[in-house]
Amino acid sequence: MEPAPSQGVRPAEGTLKEPAPTPSPSDVSWLHQYWKAVVSSPISLVPLFLLAFVGGVLLWASELHNFGTSFWGTYWNWIPPGPGSSYGIGYFALGSVLTAGLAILLATILSLAMAISIVVYLPPIASRVLTLFTDLLAGIPSVVFGIWGFVILAPYFGRTLEPSLRDALFWIPGFGGPEYAIGGGTGILLAVFVLTIMVIPITTAVMRESLRAVPHSAVEAGLALGATRWEVVRRVRMPMARQGISGALFLGFGRAIGESVAVAMLIGATPQLPPSLYAGGYTIASYILDQQDSAFVYPILLQVLVEFALVLLLITLAVNLVGHWLTRDQRSPGRRGLFS
């Protein structure tokens, strides 16, 4: 064991190691070792096995070679199924990346502001109440966001917000475009707006924890040198929490790109190269949800959706692996939360 720290000095996070457990007689017998390594250890790996099972079933069902290279293109023409039909994932992938990317962009700004407020500026009681509210936001079902967006927001977006945005910001790419694209209000912009609200609780939670995990000694050193709270945030906390903050972005992106229900209700269900952000689009996730009924009837569509699900699974696995790697510092005991 390391020597006890001198009084009044707080040891840096994670420098004290737990003592290694003393082996008991049963730990050293070869039978126990065997039991531990082969029979009982896989209990920890059950979630991993479930993941492998899900991925395995989809891989087993996949027949990507039947679609050829046109699967990675943008040409979509599936009626009638058969020779000459084409199934390109291009516009769906574009929609997924576009909506999730824009949502994460907005969510980053908002949740970074919220996390800094909660950690640095607000008194503890206000921080706690606001944390409760964002947690509540995380618990609200996506389909509830969907119906609110469709019934309440869409008319407002279509009649008021989007025309005036178009008038004011037409010189920014994506905000101009033809007038017909606005339509009834459903479209990429509405989906992005609702997605932003949906991922904010997750990104805020991860950013909050990584800003909090900055060692007190560094923060106190900054304050003792006469820096203001904002200067400490800007020069000490944010640089030291950089990894956690970027990890939060990946986690939020993985969440946003996998969201199917609210997006399917709001994005306008049009696989196309969108002329503007007001126009309809489609995402991989929402297409799977929308078309599974037809998959019952058309075996070829069933196959296409398997490939879609597989692509989505691979994207989210990659994104989450990066996010996991970036947020690894937060996972010392006592720092892990539900979403981080």
């Binding site: 250890s41 899900v54 996998g258 989450n320």
Partner: peptide, 28 residues
């Protein structure tokens, strides 16, 4: 109970499973 390395892999597995989109599980 788990040895440290097994525990780490197990945690990663749980983490990745939590990140699988619900629609993919649904399609499975």
């Amino acid at each position: 109970f788990a040895p440290r390395r097994v525990a780490e892999v197990g945690r990663l597995g749980g983490y990745l499973l939590a990140g699988v989109p619900a629609i993919v599980l649904g399609y499975f």
